[in-house]
């Protein structure tokens, strides 16, 4: 363990201290097997809390290969996800159970 390693370790820990209070919260709705809004904007290099509300009676699976996420939202239920910190770019997500209509993306700026 040299000094550089310890320093890097401490730098990695700083987001942990700051994270709890100031994590921005974004909300997303599923209705008629579609995401609303279909596009979300997120600041770069920021961890974000995403809450997905399902207004349909049927379950859905929020899935994203770009974000490496996969989570079931039961009918009329909600889920919470943590996303990021992300590099700028577009990250697609979809509802696996209704992939033809349930499409959306997160744009990181």
């Amino acid at each position: 363990m040299n000094k550089t390693n310890i320093l890097i370790g401490l730098l990695l820990l700083t987001p942990l201290v700051a994270s709890a209070a100031d994590t921005p919260v974004l909300e997303l709705k599923i209705k008629d097997h579609q995401f609303e809004p279909a596009q979300l904007e997120v600041p770069a290099d920021t961890k974000v809390k995403l809450i997905v509300h399902n207004h349909d009676a049927t379950p859905e699976e929020f899935e994203s290969y770009d974000l490496n996420r996969e989570k079931i939202v039961s009918g009329n239920g909600k889920i919470t996800l943590f996303i990021g910190p992300l590099q700028p770019g577009t990250y697609k997500f979809f509802g696996e159970f209704h992939e033809d209509t349930a499409q959306g993306s997160i744009v990181v700026r």
Binding site: A57, T58, P59, E60, E61, S74, G75, F97
Partner: peptide
């Protein structure tokens, strides 16, 4: 469990 949920959803609709 995912298959069960999906099938259940289809029954609902």
């Amino acid at each position: 469990s995912e298959i069960v949920l999906l099938a259940q959803g289809l029954f609902v609709t």
